[in-house]
């Protein structure tokens, strides 16, 4: 997807991800997806917005070789999907419940200097 589909403003604690008409595979269940089992073609569009600041954490993980500064916050999503015989439209973004969300600045792998 276009690079500008992702917008980040860490200073303001905000970010967004926009995906439009993305072809995906619907595996039906998580287990079937993990097994790369049968699937049907589907198409999804969504917009996710991150905002707020519940907690800021600086992390360093030398075993998995990543480090970063992360803002735990909230996110909302509006999305839709379609495939043959089925469509789905989510409720408005403001009805989203956040289980866990964060945005951050990270370096991992060759960019990790632990």
């Amino acid at each position: 997807m276009p690079n500008d589909s992702v917008r980040v403003n860490l200073g303001a604690g905000r970010a967004s991800l926009n995906v439009a008409d993305r072809d995906v595979e619907d595996y039906g269940t998580i287990v079937n997806a993990l097994l790369d089992g049968p699937s049907v073609p589907a198409n999804v569009s969504f917009r996710i917005e991150w905002s707020g600041e519940n907690r800021v954490a600086d992390l360093i993980d030398p075993v998995n070789r990543f480090t970063g500064r992360y803002i735990e916050n909230s996110a909302t999503i509006e999305w839709s999907a379609r495939e043959e015989g089925f469509t789905f439209v989510s409720d408005p973004a403001e009805t989203t419940t956040t289980e866990f969300a964060l945005i951050g600045r990270e370096r991992n792998g060759v960019f990790f200097h632990g």
């Binding site: 992702v6 980040v8 860490l10 970010a15 991800l17 996710i48 991150w50 970063g68 992360y70 996110a75 909302t76 999503i77 999305w79 789905f88 439209v89 989510s90 409720d91 009805t95 989203t96 419940t97 956040t98 289980e99 866990f100 969300a101 964060l102 945005i103 951050g104 600045r105 990270e106």
Partner: peptide, 12 residues
């Protein structure tokens, strides 16, 4: 930059 959203909701 990274972002992660684990969220839930309802739809039709």
């Amino acid at each position: 930059f990274v972002g992660l959203a684990n969220v839930r909701g309802m739809g039709t």
